[in-house]
């Protein structure tokens, strides 16, 4: 996971359990080639915009998809989303909001900010796997990026 040069999937998730399970789910769906997990918003933005200790990624291509948890320490998911969508370099990167509840009022806000989709993290892991698998497949394989 040290290779920052190319990241297919950037998972921004503070909960390590969730992150692990998500990665596992993606892997189970054979989508975990180049997954990078950012634990908070600040790290995610640093990675995306090659800032701080990720400045070496300066010329790296943006990830093919960003899975964004909205509840993040330091910099919130919505702020991260805003940054992504307001920067020329990253604004075309599909951002899938991952949330614990469909009740989340931030979902609406996330769509306003340019989120491409969202997925609820169910309690049942089978469903979670399925959801993640479908998600990755769709965005990585089916949905051709605009470039």
């Amino acid at each position: 996971m040290n290779d920052f040069e190319t990241i297919d999937i950037l998972l921004i998730e503070d909960n390590p359990n969730d992150a692990e399970l998500t990665v596992r789910a993606l892997k189970k769906n054979h989508l975990a080639n180049r997954i990078y997990v950012a634990e908070d918003g600040a790290q995610a933005l640093d990675i995306l915009f090659a800032r701080g200790k990720y400045s070496s990624r300066e010329n790296a291509v943006p990830p093919k998809i960003v899975l964004l948890d909205l509840k993040l320490p330091k910099i919130g998911g919505l702020e991260v989303l805003k940054e992504i969508k307001s920067d020329e370099r990253t604004k075309k990167v599909p951002v899938v909001v991952v949330t614990s509840s469909c009740e989340d009022p931030d979902i609406k806000e996330a769509y306003n900010l340019g989120a491409n989709s969202y997925v609820v993290k169910p309690v049942g892991f089978e469903q979670f796997f399925e959801a993640m698998g479908n998600l990755g497949l769709y965005w990585l394989l089916v949905n051709q990026p605009p470039i």
């Binding site: 993290k121 049942g124 892991f125």
Partner: peptide, 12 residues
């Protein structure tokens, strides 16, 4: 969010 996360972890 927060109650479901541990549950998800437990189940997962």
């Amino acid at each position: 969010h927060d109650l479901r996360a541990p549950l998800r972890a437990m189940d997962g």
